[in-house]
Each structure stands twice: as C-alpha cells, then as structure tokens.
Computed example of a mutant assay.
Amino acid sequence: MATAWDRQRAALREEITETARTLFVEQGFEATTVDQIAQSAGISRRSFFRYFGTKEDVVLGDLNARADAVARALEARPADEDPWTALRAAMLDSRSETFTDVRSDLALSRMMRDTPSLRARKVEKRQYWSEVLTPLVAERITEGDVTVRAAAVVAGVLACVDIASDVWVESEGTADMEAVYDEAVTALRG
C-alpha cells in the first residue's frame, strides 16, 4: 500500500512530467531546458534530478512501467494462445493510460521519432521490454530454440509497433494504428 509520501511524490512527478511535456510541445524538445522545466514546475534543478535522470526520461520515463503492464496482461492471456496473438492482445489491454490527448501524443511521438537523443534513449528502454517479455513469450513456444524464437517474436512485435507509430505520426494522427500494426505483422510473418 502506498504511503502518503509515495502518493505525494508520484503527484509531483506527474506535475513535472505534464509541465515538461507542455513546454516540449510549445518550444520543442531541444529548445526546452531543465532549468525552464524546473522553474515552470516550481521546483529546483536539483529536485528535477531527484525525479528524472535525464530530460529524455521525462518523455520516455514510463516506458518501463508500460512494459510491466504489457507483461502482466500477457501473463493473464490464455496459455494456449499463440505468442503473436497474445502479445497483440496484451498490448491492447494495457494501453488505457496512453493516447489520451491526440494533439499532445502526436507532438510527443513526432519528437521521439525526430530527436536523436530521444531515439537513443528509447532504444535503451526498449531493451527492458525484451528482457521482460521474452521469457513470457518463450513459455508459449513449443519447438526449436524457444529463447531465440521468443526473442525474435518480441523484436518483431516491437518493430511493428514502431512502424504503426511512424505511420500514425506521418498521417497526423489519422491512421488506424491497429490496422497498420496488423498489416506489418502480416508482412513479417508472411
């Protein structure tokens, strides 16, 4: 059970995140400084770094939590479901906290795609996804080298997610991400 201190800390972290994201959308990622974020959030620069290791983590910080949510959803899927179907369903089941404000989500997604430091940090955080999901997918594979096959499935799914996101960004948020993801998976598995 979370203590009052934990809830207060989480609320401040969320406030810093929202402040930073607003500045990123208004000014651009590179043009926004940690000092501006701290000042706008009413905290010190030092306090900012108590909550976030880097400016990139403000944008990407919850990727690990999202991976954990997908892992929980994957564990809850029927054991006899094939890995591709189970992962797709788990990603859909766990996405309730994402894509809540299309304008902001579109701007942040474009930023993640177009900013080299964000792309690099995303790759680092995606390694965690592989580490968390691969063993769960391996449990669903019954032939061949299950570890290699599971790692390949997870890598394929993440690549298809990235493709769907890129198409969504290019379409200014009008593309159906699920349909694009399904088309990418079909191409990959074909």
Rank of each mutant, 00 (worst) to 15 (best):
M112W: 04
D105E: 12
D57M: 07
V102K: 14
T115M: 08
E172Y: 13
V154Q: 07
V146H: 05
V137F: 03
A89H: 06
V185P: 07
E172I: 03
A175Q: 03
E30L: 07
P83V: 09
S44P: 06
P135R: 11
S104I: 02
D82N: 13
T17P: 00
P78G: 02
D35K: 08
A41H: 02
S117N: 05
A152N: 10
L63Q: 14
R46Q: 14
M112N: 14
P78E: 09
Q39V: 00
E15R: 14
A10D: 15
L87H: 06
D6T: 13
N64H: 13
A2F: 10
T98F: 08
V148F: 08
A179N: 01
G144Y: 03
I16K: 04
T17L: 01
M1F: 07
G28A: 01
A79Y: 06
V153T: 13
W168R: 02
R189G: 03
A164L: 00
F52Q: 09
R46F: 08
F52D: 05
R46Y: 05
W84L: 07
V161T: 05
T85D: 12
R7D: 12
I141Y: 00
R110P: 08
D162T: 14
A86W: 09
V157T: 09
S47I: 15
S47M: 10
E56R: 06
R72L: 03
E26P: 07
E183W: 04
A159W: 12
D68S: 00
V34E: 07
V180S: 02
V102I: 04
L87V: 08
P78R: 06
G28M: 01
D6G: 11
L133T: 02
V153E: 00
E18M: 10
E75T: 04
E81V: 14
K55N: 11
A159M: 09
S104G: 12
D68G: 05
R50N: 02
Q36T: 03
S165K: 07
Q27W: 01
A31M: 12
A155W: 05
V102E: 14
L23E: 04
E75L: 12
F99L: 12
F48T: 03
D57T: 03
E170I: 04
V180D: 04
M177F: 15
D166R: 10
L74M: 02
V180I: 13
T186G: 02
I16S: 00
F49N: 01
R13A: 06
L136N: 03
A2V: 04
Q27C: 13
S44R: 09
A151D: 14
G53W: 03
T19N: 04
E170K: 14
A41S: 11
E183V: 07
D93Y: 01
A120K: 09
Q36F: 01
L133C: 10
D93N: 09
V167R: 11
Y181C: 00
A138I: 11
D166W: 01
A38I: 00
E14D: 11
V167S: 03
R66V: 08
E172A: 15
V180N: 00
Q127Y: 05
Y181T: 00
F52I: 06
D35S: 15
M177A: 15
